[in-house]
Design a protein around this nucleic acid. Structure first.
Lengths: 212, 212
DNA sequence: GTCTATATAGGGATAGAC
DNA sequence: GTCTATCCCTATATAGAC
């Protein structure tokens, strides 16, 4: 929102840490390297974050906070459920594409990459609820076909995250073919296709219009 | 296939290591703990594997080898493409359910959880090709609708893996409700539903029967 | 093949000057 | 608020006896 040509050291640390945590995971991340990339000494990190674990928390919270805002903005908008669905997927895919490291952290987090105690991230669960409630509501109003909403949301999160984080490794030909925008479009289209066929389903749209 | 009441120490190490690597990732895994769980001294591990990295490779190879066998068996069987599709999903879901740790390793591996050099696992890429070729073939013979086969395979891998590895953390209510068998069935049904709607698509089955 | 003991290194974290 | 120096611990790996 604000032009920040001059970002504070704290922000730079968070940014570099996000990349490193995504790339190497919590245990694979070296504070030494973060400091080096920021251009300060390792000891100086401890002026901003009292421990590696605190730094990790800060990164997580920033990432999820932003994601949640994006989701909420879409859900609170004035639009039909189907439009919201598309907007939701668009926004999510854009976010993942713009911040693949953040997505990797999300995936790692849900694989149990955390330092012991804090394995249950309330942020993630809250996000889940938010979206699956939307789908349940759509079902209730008979706009969506009846499916397991949680399963569907999990599917989409897993699928899209997998596209951007794992596909480069296990299907490089597919991923690297063409420019980034084309890839993003392709993934949006595919994802929406899948969701739509599940939620609007086998009945074709024309017959559904008549239904109401 | 063979009754193995007496397994060698090497096998026990591999088993324990698989669990630990799945749970904590490469960098989070402590050889000390593996040894402890096996019931030997840490130093004894080095009699079987010359380094942590070699142990990691061995675990990976064993896991993927078995997975590939399962997939091949299904693809080589005598069955219609649609039956194979269902068998493929069933087999994959069963495998993931039986070895969630192995699946976590797969996910971690594709997130880049490897010790530097070996980031490109040929096993994974080979597996991908195997399945997407099957789908392409089905398309060519006009049994399947025309979709991006790679995207679809990635979707299924990502989705199912996510169900078993991440859902327990981010949607515990959904995951833990009821006995394991019911959960596995639920996931199979959902996954097949998604794939079927994508591949067999909007045309309904009755009209397709007439087609051939 | 398994042990005890030890080498060696690297990583997180602190102390204290500037 | 950033630095240098250093503490302390833990982790991988090796040496060599049994």
């Amino acid at each position: 929102m604000v032009a920040h040509a001059e970002r504070g050291t704290r922000e730079r640390i968070l940014e570099v840490a996000e990349t490193s945590l995504g790339e190497h995971g919590y245990h694979g991340t070296r504070l030494h390297q973060i400091a080096q990339q920021v251009g300060i000494q390792k000891a100086s990190l401890f002026h901003y974050f009292s421990s590696k674990e605190h730094l990790y928390r800060a990164v997580i919270e920033e990432g999820f906070g932003e994601t949640e805002q994006v989701i909420r903005r879409v859900l609170d908008s004035e639009a039909t459920p189907l439009e919201k669905l598309r907007a939701l997927i668009d926004a999510y895919v854009d976010m993942v594409a713009a911040h693949p490291e953040r997505t990797k952290i999300l995936l790692r987090q849900s694989l149990g990459d955390a330092p012991a105690a804090q394995n249950q991230p309330p942020e993630l669960q809250r996000l889940m609820k938010l979206v699956s409630t939307f789908i349940t509501e759509g079902e209730r109003v008979q706009v969506f076909a009846s499916v397991d909403p949680t399963a569907l949301v999990l599917s989409v999160i897993g699928m899209v995250a997998f596209f951007f984080t794992s596909a480069p490794v296990i299907a490089p030909d597919w991923f690297d073919g063409g420019p980034a925008e084309a890839r993003i479009e392709r993934i949006k289209r595919h994802t929406f296709m899948v969701v739509q066929r599940c939620l609007v389903g086998t009945r074709d749209p024309s017959s559904r219009e008549a239904e109401r």
